[in-house]
């Protein structure tokens, strides 16, 4: 079987308005019934950061404001990864009623999820960034203008990954329960609440097998230090995301006609 990525993307772009409609209506729905609406999506993380920040800066005996920035930047990008991954088990089995009755490219369902969370992430992150710089916790820097790049490659990475996880869950429903546990473990296994230099040297190689280690580093460094990360970090992220993206699309193409018989 051959995969023509351009063709796949063109096919799904025919349905761009479907995706638009799903994403915009779902976002509206998510906030409609609560009084503070969108502000909850900001207030939630702020309170969360505040609690974790107070507890951990005490435990880690690190400087509070420095620590906040480190944690906030890492958690923000990791959260984007984890909400998508946790939702990915449902991308096909949760859309059974559409899949059985309408022809839509299966990638549409993946993109619905990823784009919705991407928008959530961008709004939430930008608002917190502004809040941080107003209160003086954060210093804006030129390096931060490069942030769309790690987000873009993270996007490709999670599109591929959630295609695979969604597909796998059609065959093994247990994954619905397993995936959130794994992302939680990955969260603690990625230097977010603690700094890399707190990791004992002999364990470091295990950390470096984790792709999230690099994505978090790429995203956090411009915010935390105002500099760009090491070149090798960027290369690893770009390569990983392109491989996972291609593999995800390939597997989706290979199995997409099987999905309907397994729902």
């Amino acid at each position: 079987m051959k995969l023509n990525i351009i063709k796949e993307i063109k096919e799904v772009l025919k349905f761009k308005w479907v995706i638009y409609s799903f994403v915009s209506s779902t976002l509206k729905m998510r906030y409609k019934r609560s009084v503070l609406g969108f502000f909850w999506s900001l207030l939630g993380p702020v309170l969360n950061y505040l609690m974790v920040g107070i507890v951990f800066s005490f435990l880690a005996r690190s400087q509070m404001d420095k620590y906040f920035v480190h944690m906030f930047a890492g958690t923000a990008i990791f959260n984007f990864f984890s909400v998508v991954t946790n939702g990915s088990g449902n991308v096909f089995i949760g859309n059974e009623h559409y899949i059985k009755k309408i022809y839509l490219p299966k990638l549409t369902f993946v993109l619905n999820l990823v784009l919705m969370e991407l928008i959530n992430f961008i709004f939430g992150f930008t608002a917190l960034l502004l809040l941080g710089s107003i209160t003086g916790y954060l210093k804006l820097s030129w390096a931060m203008l490069t942030l769309p790049l790690p987000v873009l490659f993270m996007f490709l990475f999670v599109v591929g990954l959630s295609s695979m996880l969604g597909l796998a869950t059609v065959y093994f429903r247990d994954l619905l329960h397993v995936i959130p546990i794994l992302t939680q473990a990955l969260f603690f296994g990625t230097p977010i609440l603690y700094a890399v230099d707190m990791v004992p040297q002999r364990f470091l190689f295990i950390y470096k097998l984790n792709p999230l280690y690099y994505f978090v580093d790429w995203f956090r460094t411009p915010i935390y230090t105002g500099q760009l990360p090491m070149f090798s970090t960027i290369v690893i992220c770009v390569a990983t995301s392109l491989i996972i993206f291609t593999l995800g699309l390939y597997l989706l193409k290979k199995f997409e006609n099987e999905i309907i018989f397994r729902l």
């Binding site: 025919k14 479907v18 209506s25 729905m29 309408i102």
Partner: peptide, 27 residues
Amino acid sequence: PLIEIAAGFNPEFTGRENIYLNGYMLG
């Protein structure tokens, strides 16, 4: 691309939103 007429409906969306969603699905 759909055979049952209500197939493209999302029960959580309003009638108007469903007109659009369904219309988009039909191209």
